[in-house]
Computed example of a mutant assay.
Amino acid sequence: MTATQEHPTFASGTAGDDPAMAKHGMTLTLRVWRQKGPQHKGKMVTYQVEDISPDMSFLEMLDVLNEKLILAGDDPVVFDHDCREGICGSCGLMINGIAHGPEQTTTCQLHMRKFKDGDTIDIEPWRATAFPVIKDLSVNRQALDRIIQAGGYISAPTGTAPEAHSILVSKKDSDAAFDAATCIGCGACVAACPNASSMLFTSAKVTHLNLLPQGQPERDDRVVNMIAQQDREGFGGCTNIGECSAACPKGISMETISRLNHDLLGALRAGARPKS
């Protein structure tokens, strides 16, 4: 790791706060990965923040840091976020070497009460060849979108919605499909995997369609094309270590990977081949 650069201490109060007001909250040392762009070398830069409330989310704590950096005339730390409700999957950070931090949730739903006053926190972007750094903590995760696109569409009639009981689905299959469909595409599985494999993500996207009647016409083509695209994107191979499922904020099981392997073997035996 490169040498760190020291920066001043920042507090979460405003410039007009009464200096005699008693301080509440935590003082933290942040070691943040700073990188100007994909072609630049990055380094860890050290900051201190004060008066951090335990009720803040991790992203709100970064907002405090950025507000003070801007007021000091420095560039704010770039990081990915959107809904901040644990739904969209946009946020994603390596926090002390753990994808999304010390709790199995999204970064936006991680609260500062998981840390202690005086802690040092290392904050880095997702580390994977397929996720090139855009700037600082922000990475390009379009590779996951291209895997989904490779799966194509499902053959479904248009028009009015069908009657709810016209297509029967067993509870076991529907439950498994819904569990797989909870994947929000955050990429934590890739970041947590020592091989930078996207198998948990790909298997979730394959499984939730392949278990339902609407997904059957394209079932074989879907799985071979998505696996082929996954390989083209440069993701590593799966060796069933299990870090992906442990880091997944939605708790998606490695059983989905077993389902994908089963579907892939069946598709290859049936003669399905990926598009060139």
Score class of each variant (00 low, 15 high):
Leu30Trp: 07
Pro54Asn: 15
Asp119Gly: 07
Gly151Thr: 01
Arg127Trp: 03
Gln39Pro: 10
Leu265Trp: 08
Met61Tyr: 09
Leu59Ile: 11
Asp63His: 14
Ala150Pro: 10
Met1Arg: 06
Arg34Trp: 04
Pro76Lys: 01
Pro132Thr: 06
Arg127Lys: 14
Leu59Pro: 00
Ile167Thr: 12
Ala246Ile: 14
Ile121Asp: 00
Val139Arg: 10
Ser138Leu: 06
Cys248Leu: 05
His165Arg: 12
Gln214Asp: 11
Lys171His: 04
Gly237Leu: 08
Trp33Phe: 15
Asn96Gly: 11
Phe235Pro: 03
Gly251Trp: 13
Asp55Ala: 07
Cys183Lys: 04
Phe178Cys: 00
Asp175Cys: 01
Gly97Glu: 04
Asp18Arg: 14
Ser170Cys: 02
Pro19Cys: 03
Ile121Pro: 00
Gln104Pro: 12
Val78Cys: 08
Pro8Ala: 12
Asp17Ile: 12
Arg269Ala: 10
Cys183Leu: 04
Pro76Cys: 00
Ala164Arg: 08
Thr160Glu: 10
Cys186Glu: 06
Lys43Arg: 15
Gln5Cys: 05
Ala272Thr: 03
Thr160Ala: 13
Lys172Cys: 05
Gln5Asn: 06
Ile98Leu: 15
Glu163Tyr: 08
Gly25Ala: 09
Gly187Met: 07
His100Ala: 13
Ala99Arg: 11
Gly187Val: 07
Asp63Cys: 08
Gln216Gly: 05
Gly101Pro: 04
Asp117Pro: 05
Gly16Pro: 04
Asp117Val: 09
Pro19His: 06
Ser138Trp: 03
Met26Ser: 14
Ala180Met: 05
Arg113Val: 12
Glu243Val: 03
Gly215Thr: 07
Arg219Ala: 06
Asp175Glu: 14
Ser174Ile: 10
Thr106His: 12
Gly237Ala: 10
Ser170Thr: 11
Asn195Thr: 15
Ser90Trp: 04
Pro38Met: 13
Leu62Val: 06
Ala267Trp: 07
Glu163Gly: 01
Ser203Val: 06
Asp80Met: 13
Cys183Pro: 14
Cys248His: 00
Leu268Gly: 02
Cys183Val: 03
Pro38Arg: 14
Asp74Val: 02
Ala161Leu: 15
Ala191Leu: 09
Asp145Gly: 11
Gly73Gln: 04
Gln229Tyr: 02
Pro217Asn: 09
Pro54Asp: 15
Met94Ile: 14
Asp63Glu: 12
Pro249Asp: 15
Met199Asp: 09
Asp17Trp: 06
Leu168Gln: 06
Ile70Lys: 13
Gln109Val: 02
Met226Asn: 13
Ala177Phe: 05
Gln216Ala: 12
Thr46Leu: 08
Ser155Lys: 10
Ile147Gln: 03
Leu110Lys: 15
Asp51Phe: 02
Ala196Pro: 02
Asn140Thr: 12
Ala188Leu: 08
Leu264Gln: 01
Met1Gln: 11
Asp263Trp: 11
Pro125Trp: 13
Ser245Tyr: 11
